[in-house]
Design a protein around this nucleic acid. Structure first.
Lengths: 234, 234
DNA sequence: AAAAAAACTTGATTTACGTCAAATTTTCTT
DNA sequence: AAGAAAATTTGACGTAAATCAAGTTTTTTT
């Protein structure tokens, strides 16, 4: 079951790699970095970088949770990825054609970042093969995450996408079928790529069908197998 | 105008980087590779790799054109990327969690590939910093391409997406507002992420409004500025 | 504790787009 | 060149999901 699940596409925006590349740096490199790194703290809700702004920095998420998204002309955002600690923001600026950020980033929770200029970062890639390998693995993972979301948001319909989100929360974040639902309907809607009203309707429906139980912001997935089925069928 | 355009999202699936990473290898490395590389030729339409199949190889596109796509349960495909020569298929398998291909690849045109096993490829990344840097830049570019398509296919509607495709053909492929339209309606539909009928209707409409001229498979964008406008507004 | 604001739910309506079906054109086969 | 097959166009219809609007509940402010 778990293997099957792993091989399927899902819209979960959160990666699983947890190893920091910083751990791969030598003592010497770390000392050299000391002067080049700026540690910055963001409060929940604060904007970390804006789509379209000149991009010359790489940011290492030390702690917290960051939303990576693209802004459209109307007020709605497309979430590309949600990053916990030990991830890197702005790698796509290492592609020479990118002089501006292609996305915005916002702190979902209080977040601590290490900011490094691209040039220094490039230097690390050149001098430390372990570091370079890790960066490649991270980029490859980001690619997989975004492709998976792309697939789900274009191919699955609302019920499947919402089931996806619930399973992601259960499996990846809380590691339990029962968990507190801190996210607002608006946030859920943004993650699942649908309107707030659709989220409300789907939750009502899922409750009616005894798929979930939701009381006092505590969600319980009552029928995991059916939920999984729904997420697969779309 | 051109700068504005460059900063906008578009659904063009084709990258622009043209430098091969192979050029960055030393004579010694190339000789070492000699025995490890298999050169394979694919004819137009042939499948290069299948989503879900075990992934232990990296493929360098030498020449030709390759479609990278995800398959859904029904017969329709989601195109992630279209790769001309000097690109690499399967980099996402360098992320340790990926043991199978997350996508399928098919030759759009006759295509020549160099196939390398992942282990050898990883070794090159470790020993040659220029090579590693180039691979990172490529991955970063792929990320940008896929994110851009993700945005367009979820946020823009059919007219905007189709205008996007025409502009991509004009700007990136033929570098002229007038070009031969070899692609069938079905292929255009797949690239723009819509039904064949929608493509037909949009073409008819664009002709009625004197936006384009299409005779004997020869397309001419008569009003570039309006086409650009349509592609932006969605 | 009352009032105000925000978040959520539910129903009615609209809409973009896909599907189905039939007609027409183009391309391929013999 | 004639006939068959495939591709394209066009209209009619259905539908998933967004939007609009009006309640209801929860949270925040005073």
């Amino acid at each position: 079951m778990t293997e099957v699940q792993a091989s399927m596409q899902h819209s979960c925006a959160i990666g699983q790699s947890s190893l920091s590349c910083m751990e791969l740096l030598s003592q010497q490199e770390l000392e050299l970095l000391q002067s080049k790194i700026a540690e910055v703290n963001y409060k929940k809700g604060e904007i970390i970088c804006k789509q379209g702004a000149p991009a010359s920095q790489i940011m290492l998420v030390r702690d917290g949770l960051v939303k990576i998204y693209m802004e459209n002309n109307s007020g709605e955002n497309l979430i590309l990825q949600i990053m916990p600690g030990m991830n890197i923001i702005g790698l796509s600026t290492l592609f020479e054609g990118n002089t501006v950020y292609q996305f915005s980033a916002q702190a979902y929770l209080d977040t601590k970042l290490d900011v490094i200029d691209s040039a220094t970062f490039r230097q690390l890639i050149r001098t430390n093969p372990d570091f370079a390998t890790k960066v490649i693995a991270l980029l490859a993972e980001y690619n997989t995450i975004i492709s998976g979301r792309f697939f789900c948001l274009t191919q699955k319909q609302t019920y499947g996408r919402f089931a996806d989100v619930l399973l992601c929360l259960a499996n990846r974040i809380y590691k339990s079928q029962k968990f507190p639902l801190h996210l607002s309907r608006k946030e859920l809607a943004e993650i699942a790529g649908m309107s707030v009203e659709s989220v409300a309707r789907i939750i009502t429906r899922f409750k009616e069908e005894n798929l979930i139980d939701l009381e006092c912001k505590h969600l319980n997935i009552l029928d995991y197998n059916r939920m999984f089925e729904i997420s697969q069928k779309g």
